[in-house]
């Protein structure tokens, strides 16, 4: 088991070719090369915090403002899901809840856990943490469902006085929260997970 770094090489994360350690950019795909992303954890936390800050108004303010002839209703994310469930569409309500509440919360916890575990130089379960990271990268985008629903509905439901739907301030906050947490996950360099493992070659990570 030799890592590229132990062999004095640097791996391109885009095309997987290896170059001598001091190489600045990949000769094959042109990406800048870093043995480990500089300040990876700081950038993870910065985006993470920005995402969390946006996530609070995203839940407090209305996502959708529905106006009909007789009524006006402001739906927050959770309120909207409850509304759908009340109509009997439990499956769709579940999709909304999972995409807008469950996934973001899991994401905040999981990214925080990964960043902390690297900071603490944890040696436990690197394969499981790697899988967790892959899952986080995969599911993060799905939170955009609710933003798209708002965009669709406010374009579609413009029936003069009969009914109209306007986006609420939470739509912007939520979209930003999703995008920031995607950046946060992207800033995490998974190679850090493996750096503090006891090396069989006897060369510790520097």
């Amino acid at each position: 088991m030799t890592t590229a770094r132990q062999a004095g090489l640097v791996t391109c994360r885009t095309c997987a070719r290896v170059w001598p350690m001091q190489t600045e950019s990949c000769g094959r795909c042109g990406m800048p090369l870093t043995s480990r992303e500089p300040m990876s954890l700081q950038r993870v936390w910065a985006w993470w915090l920005a995402g969390l800050v946006c996530y609070i108004p995203a839940n407090l303010y209305p996502m959708l403002v529905t106006e009909t002839l007789t009524s006006r209703s402001d739906d927050t994310i959770i309120g909207g899901a409850i509304e759908i469930a009340r109509h009997g569409d439990l499956g769709i309500a579940l999709i909304v809840l999972i995409a807008s509440v469950f996934i973001p919360v899991i994401k905040f916890i999981a990214i925080g856990y990964l960043a902390l575990s690297v900071r603490m130089r944890s040696q436990k379960t690197p394969v499981a943490r790697m899988h967790l990271f892959e899952v986080i990268e995969f599911i993060g985008r799905w939170s955009m469902i609710d933003v798209f629903v708002v965009a669709i509905l406010s374009a579609l439901v413009q029936l003069s006085v009969v009914a109209s739907i306007q986006p609420g301030p939470a739509a912007l906050a939520f979209a930003l929260s999703v995008i920031f947490t995607m950046f946060s996950a992207k800033s995490f360099d998974p190679r850090l997970i493996w750096d503090y493992l006891p090396s069989r070659a006897g060369q510790g990570a520097s």
Binding site: T3, A4, L9, C12, A16, S35, P126, I193
Partner: peptide
Amino acid sequence: IGCPNCDLL
């Protein structure tokens, strides 16, 4: 080939 996720050669 270096592993993009764990740097193993």
